[in-house]
């Protein structure tokens, strides 16, 4: 019954690569990923139970944040492992086929697009850069200091706090612009993500820049060094670097046309 209902969960499409997948690599639902070669393309996939990945159960799972989180991390772990041996074209979470034949048909149908995109992304990685303005510490260590004795003292300290906040925001914006301009020089393509809402992201601070850069592996070290150089040491401005990622943000074919 279960074997009837097994589906194919595809993580990524790659060119054929000479190494075997690591034996201890695990994918979604703790499955062991495998490769399926069709011509000059390879799909990296897992056989997953229809009980979890069939349309109805999947729909239910996708409303479970813990499940989505675990599945997304497992998906990324496979894609990430692939970047060590080849340039993977990451597919979107939960790309499923009924059987190997369906995967082959997809590779066949998308052949031109896949090979073109793989050629474009080969040897490139993605770096994520975010700039946050943090609330300057509200100087709560004031108890040592006497409470404002007059209205004027109070207003003065309020004004200081407001000015400090505005300054941080302005400086963070400037840094964001400077960083973006400098980092763009290393990037072959750029994707600007919407600023993250701290309520949703649960990440503190005001997000001013949220960008992904497609950078050749060879010059990635320069990219990171430049970032470190510019990021400065203002404790109120946080610069976050993530990566190298597989080129998720640049994998869709329309990116190629957009960027030209």
């Amino acid at each position: 019954m279960k074997s009837d209902a097994e589906l194919r969960y595809v993580y990524a499409v790659t060119a054929p690569f000479p190494t075997a997948l690591a034996g201890d690599l695990r994918g979604v639902g703790d499955t062991v990923p495998r490769t399926l070669r069709h011509g000059d393309l390879v799909a990296v996939l897992s056989d997953v139970p229809g009980d979890d990945f069939g349309e109805e159960p999947l729909r239910a799972h996708l409303e479970d944040l813990d499940w989505v989180s675990a599945t997304a991390r497992a998906h990324q772990a496979v894609v990430d492992a692939l970047t060590a041996v080849t340039c993977p074209l990451p597919l979107r979470l939960a790309t499923l086929y009924r059987d190997d034949e369906g995967v082959r048909r997809a590779l066949e149908a998308g052949h031109a697009e896949f090979t073109e995109t793989l050629a474009r992304l080969d040897g490139r990685v993605e770096w994520g850069v975010k700039v946050y303005a943090e609330q300057p510490a509200p100087q709560p260590a004031e108890p040592a200091r006497p409470a404002p004795t007059s209205g004027r003292d109070y207003l003065r300290s309020r004004r200081r706090a407001v000015t400090a906040r505005e300054n941080v925001l302005e400086e963070a914006e400037q840094l964001g612009r400077a960083l973006h301009a400098a980092l763009s020089g290393y990037a072959e393509d750029i994707r600007i993500y919407p600023a993250q809402n701290p309520k949703l992201s649960r990440i503190p601070g005001q997000n001013l820049l949220n960008a992904a850069y497609l950078v050749p592996r060879d010059t990635s070290e320069d990219f990171v060094a430049r970032l470190d150089q510019l990021a400065g040491h203002d404790p109120n401005i946080r610069v976050e670097l993530t990566g190298p990622w597989a080129p998720y943000s640049f994998a869709a074919a329309e990116r190629a046309t957009e960027s030209r």
């Binding site: 589906l7 595809v10 499409v13 990945f53 069939g54 349309e55 999947l58 729909r59 996708l62 074209l89 990451p90 597919l91 979107r92 979470l93 939960a94 790309t95 499923l96 086929y97 009924r98 369906g102 048909r105 997809a106 149908a109 998308g110 995109t117 994707r191 998720y248 943000s249 640049f250 994998a251 869709a252 074919a253």
Partner: peptide, 11 residues
């Protein structure tokens, strides 16, 4: 992000 492949089964 990531590639959306047409012809996939679900969703």
């Amino acid at each position: 992000a990531g590639v959306v492949v047409t012809g996939s089964l679900t969703l």
